[in-house]
């Protein structure tokens, strides 16, 4: 955590961006973009989550040790997802 006080306007700006992204992801869902639908949805969700983590959760202003723990948390999630799904796909159990 930091003792740094983040200006209020930063919070309002992040809030506005999050709302716009929510609107965009809802709109995009009504168009059939094939595989791109999932890519768009996940990309927007990841951007939104990153903004929340960096600004609302103050990670951008935090010390290095916090950065390592945060990155470690998400890296472990990627291990869970990537290793398991690569196994499923490699065996042809999905999308058959």
């Amino acid at each position: 955590m930091s003792t740094q006080v983040v200006p209020k306007k930063v919070y309002f700006l992040i809030f506005a961006i999050l709302m716009v992204l929510t609107f965009l992801t809802v709109q995009a869902a009504f168009y059939n973009l094939g595989v791109l639908n999932i890519v768009v949805v996940i990309t927007i969700a990841v951007i939104k989550a990153t903004l929340v983590v960096l600004y609302f959760m103050h990670v951008r202003y935090s010390d290095r040790l916090t950065w390592v723990v945060v990155a470690g948390g998400f890296a472990w999630l990627l291990v869970l997802l990537v290793l398991t799904l690569s196994d499923y796909f490699a065996r042809g159990w999905l999308r058959s």
């Binding site: 992801t25 809802v26 869902a29 973009l33 639908n37 949805v41 969700a45 983590v53």
Partner: peptide, 21 residues
């Protein structure tokens, strides 16, 4: 509170939006 918000940021598109078109 923000973490719980992030969980919903992923739950909403996964459950409600995917394959809506």
């Amino acid at each position: 509170w923000h973490f719980v918000d992030i969980v919903w940021i992923f739950l909403f598109p996964f459950l409600y939006l995917i394959s809506r078109h």
